[in-house]
Design a protein around this nucleic acid. Structure first.
Lengths: 238, 238
DNA sequence: CCAAAAGTGTTTCACTTACACCCATGA
DNA sequence: TCATGGGTGTAAGTGAAACACTTTTGG
C-alpha cells in the first residue's frame, strides 16, 4: 500500500497530466481606488470577456519566472512585487481541457512608465476592485481570494509600499492602507504608528506642484526592514 | 503581443508539460512534541530516504482530492484538516523529470485509530519537528515552510483544535499552542483568553483515569465560530 | 485672504502581562 | 498523606483609539 504512488511516480510520463498555467492578479493604486489589471480575451473560450493575465508554464522556467514572463508579454510590466498565493485545480475550470493554475498577485507602481503604457493598450484596462466585470474561467474566484490575501498581508508586511513610488508622503501611504483595507484610518494615529516602526526615513524633499502646503517625502528603509525580518519580528503595521 | 499566450493556450497539449504532484506535511501532537509523518522511500531516487507522503494528481481528481487519496493510501489517514499552502516548481526538484508539487499541510488527531495504525507500519514514522532526518527531494524546504505557515495560522484560526480529540481539557489545548508556537504560555491568561472567545463550550464530563484531580472537558463551538467568521471577525487567539 | 492639505499631543480605555495559592483526586 | 495537576483574581503596564486646532502654501 505504501508504494502505490511510487509506481505511479516511476511511470508518471505514461499518464495524461493536467496543463499547468500561472495567472496574475495585478494590483495598482491610483488617486481613486485599488485597481486590478485585466486583459480582454481575443479568442474562444470566453471570447471578448475580461480575464487575468496568465498562460502556460514552460518546461525551462519556474512558476515565478512564468508569471513574470506573462506580465511582461501581456501587460508590459517589468518590475512588480510578485507572490504566489493559491493553486486552482478544479477539474472543469477550463472548458477545453484540464488546466491547473498557480495564481499570483502582483503589486505595481502606477508611477512606473511601463505600466502606464500597458493601460493604453486597447486590450488591457484597469478596473476598480469594486467595479469588476464578469470574468472568464474561474477568475472571479481567483481575484476574490487575491484581495483577501492582500488585505491579510498588507498589515503584516510592508508590501503596501510596492504600490507607491520610491519617495512618497505619509498621506499617500495612509491612502494605500485605507484603500486596500477599505476603511478610514485616523491620521495622527497612523503617523505615530508607522513612524514608530522605524522603517520609514524622512528625506529632505517635499512633494511638488501642489496647491497647498507641500508634504514631506519619505522612503522605505530596506536595511532596517531586513534586520527586523531576520530577527523574526512580527509586524502589525496597522 | 497581448495574444502570445493565447496561441500557446489553444495548443497547450502539443507542448511538454510538467508532471503535477501533491505532497502532504502531516502534523500530529503527542504528549511530547509536534510531530511530522514521514514515509521511507522504497525506490530510486532517494531510495531509503524519508520523504513526505504524496504522489501524482490524476486527471479526474482535484488537488484536494489527490492529497486526501495520498494520505489514505500512504498513511492510512482518513480524516484530517487539510490545507494547501504553497506550490513548489523549481525545475530540478525531482531528478527524474520536471515535477511541480502542490504542498498541503494536514493536521490529524493522534487519538484517531487510523492514524495510530499508520504509525505501526514499517515504512512510516512520526518525527519531532526538531528532530527530522535529511529528507528526499526538496522536502526539507517544504516542511520548513509548512511549520512556518502552521505557526502563523494557529494564532488566527482555531485549526489547533484539529490536533485534539473532540473533547479536550484546557491544559491539552494550551499544550497545542505551546508546542506549535514553541514557547510557554501563562496558564491563567491562556484560560481567560480562550474562554473569552466564546468558541469553547464546557461539557459536563471530566477526563478519566488520571492520578490527580480530573480536568473538565470542553468542546469547540463550531456554530459560534462560523458566525464570527461570517461577520469577518479577525482572530488573535494567542 | 481663502482653500486645501500638512502637521502635531493628550487622554481614555481595553487588553496584555505578571504573578501564587488552594483544591480535588488517586495512589 | 502525599504527589500531581486543576482551577482561580488582581494589579500594573502597554498599546490602541478618539479627538481639534494651527501651519504652510498656492491660487
Amino acid at each position: 500500500m505504501i508504494n502505490t504512488n511510487e509506481a505511479a511516480g516511476a511511470f508518471a510520463y505514461r499518464y495524461a497530466r493536467p496543463a499547468l498555467a500561472v495567472d496574475c492578479v495585478v494590483f495598482g493604486l491610483d488617486d481613486e481606488d485599488l485597481k486590478v489589471l485585466l486583459i480582454r480575451r481575443g479568442m474562444e473560450p470566453f471570447l471578448g470577456r475580461w480575464a487575468l493575465p496568465g498562460g502556460f508554464v514552460r518546461m525551462d522556467e519556474t512558476l515565478d519566472e512564468a508569471a513574470r514572463r506573462e506580465l511582461r508579454e501581456e501587460a508590459g510590466i517589468d518590475r512588480a512585487h510578485l507572490e504566489q498565493f493559491h493553486t486552482f485545480g478544479a477539474i472543469d475550470r477550463d472548458p477545453r481541457e484540464r488546466v491547473v493554475s498557480v495564481a499570483h498577485f502582483a503589486l505595481v507602481k502606477l508611477s512606473d512608465h511601463a505600466v502606464r503604457a500597458a493601460t493604453d493598450a486597447r486590450e488591457a484596462a484597469w478596473f476598480g476592485v469594486d467595479d469588476l466585470p464578469k470574468l472568464a474561467f474561474d477568475h472571479d474566484v481567483i481575484v476574490e481570494m487575491a484581495i483577501h490575501r492582500l488585505r491579510a498581508k498588507v498589515s503584516q508586511s510592508p508590501i503596501g509600499l510596492e504600490l507607491l513610488p520610491k519617495r512618497f508622503t505619509l498621506t499617500q501611504l495612509q491612502r494605500v492602507y485605507e484603500r486596500v483595507l477599505d476603511r478610514e484610518i485616523d491620521k495622527r494615529n497612523f503617523r505615530k504608528k508607522v513612524l514608530a516602526t522605524g522603517l520609514l526615513v524622512e528625506t529632505d524633499e517635499v512633494e511638488q506642484d501642489v496647491a497647498h502646503r507641500a508634504a514631506r517625502l519619505f522612503r522605505f528603509d530596506e536595511r532596517a526592514y531586513r534586520k527586523l525580518e531576520k530577527d523574526g519580528f512580527v509586524f502589525d503595521l496597522i
